[in-house]
Design a protein around this nucleic acid. Sequence first.
RNA 1: GUCCCCAUCGUCUAGUGGCCUAGGACGGCGGCCUCUCACGCCGCUAACAGGGGUUCAAACCCCCUUGGGGACGCCA
Length: 464
Amino acid sequence: MTTIVTRFPPSPTGYLHIGGARTALFNYLYARKNNGKFVLRIEDTDQARSTQEMTDAILDAMHWLGLDFDEGPYFQSERGDIYNSYVDKLLASGHAYYCSCTPDEVEQMREEARAKGLKPKYNGCCRTKGLGPGPGRVVRFMTPLTGKVVFDDLVKGPIAWDVQEMDDFVVRRADGSAIYQMAVVVDDAEMGVTHVIRGDDHQNNTPKQILIYQALGFPLPLFGHVPMILGPDKKKMSKRHGATSVMLYKEMGYLPEAMLSYLVRLGWSHGDDELFTMDDLLQKFSLEGLGKSASVFDMDKLGWTNSHFIKTGDVPRLARLLGEIITTTTNFQPAQEYLQAIVPLFQPRAKTLKEMAEQAEFFLHEAEALPYDQHAVDKFLTPEIRQHLRILAERMETLASFDQKSLENMVAAYLEECGIKFKALAQPMRVAITGTTMSPGLFETMDVLGKERTLARLYRAVSL
RNA sequence: GUCCCCAUCGUCUAGUGGCCUAGGACGGCGGCCUCUCACGCCGCUAACAGGGGUUCAAACCCCCUUGGGGACGCCA
């Protein structure tokens, strides 16, 4: 049994986007699950649009998601000679020919075809001219005139293409460089790729590639075309749908494991399971679970998925990540120890780390600089209430231990003495301590805040 | 326009001829819990695109229609 080899071939003309990440994930999982190899190849043959920054960004994003590759990255820009040697083979074996038609002429042929309601194609006029190399000349693949290309798609089943739907496509540009179709086939063949799993926007150039495989005598890999991820308007996801770059989600406070879990459920399922860790996936992933229809990217569900992983996440790690977000968005440099005490209070409350950073901000200010929700102050910090707060603060000073339990007992005793309900004091205390009307539980908040900060805030509120 | 692919709740999906008066999840709505906000828990809402077949029996198989997506580059 041969080793399974999958690959992910991003083009560094943009960031790693949602769809690409999912494709990479599927390939990664399939290879890993089957003890195979996952190859990364950078398809940068379009020199004009490819950049080093994008390559780095893609590598970063894959690393963030934990999609490590076993081989590569290969760069197509460094393999031009290899592709060309195969174009020469095609030429030598009569599977390709030189064409002297100009881009304008070809465009005209397409226009004419369109006008007749036909598929826009190059008309093959140089097929029999027996032209040799020359300036401005491209090399075209000699597509068979009759017959069908049939392949059994891993996800969609049998797919048949009439060769008449294809024209004699270019395999080498006038500048001498080989074109995508040529590069993928040669690379996949040379790299021993056994399973080509890619977006179904590639489905219709699979027949062309199969023709090349056959002309070159390469064994065919298996192809699987996974459906697209659509925006809420059901159009192919693109920038106008907002955040499509994976790394943008990191910035927005999403956890990589949440991205993985959400993404894999888009177009793949395993019974009624909803949440997956990488370990689960390595156990459960299979091509059979892939769906055939396109799916819509849903932020709400991503948010739910993320909140789950925040809720169940490792506290020290979350504290570290939270700290990173806080320092990049504010001037605070909170201590890890403090953050680790804070995180558990917000795990059930935050949908993203970014949200957590915002919710936890009141923990970071000096008492005097704590922002107040003025409306809440006016409503809750009445003169009478402030008297209570003052007494409470004074009693807190004498507390032997400033912890949740002691605080709760002390306040309960005071409530008993005065004959008032906790409800009457809860919101005022919250406003005094956090500046707002929404926060984690009062006593746990005070506990984490500590005696000094809590008292300072209480006294500030009393003396307003 | 031509070709390819697809078609179950608003969304992600389970379902591979009887277990389906179609299940789960997100969302929405209502309730419980409660010091606020969340979490959690309980309940409700909502779908087999339409029409023909095949079959004792169709969400599941076939055909047509309709709808949606994608591709038609000297981009990848």
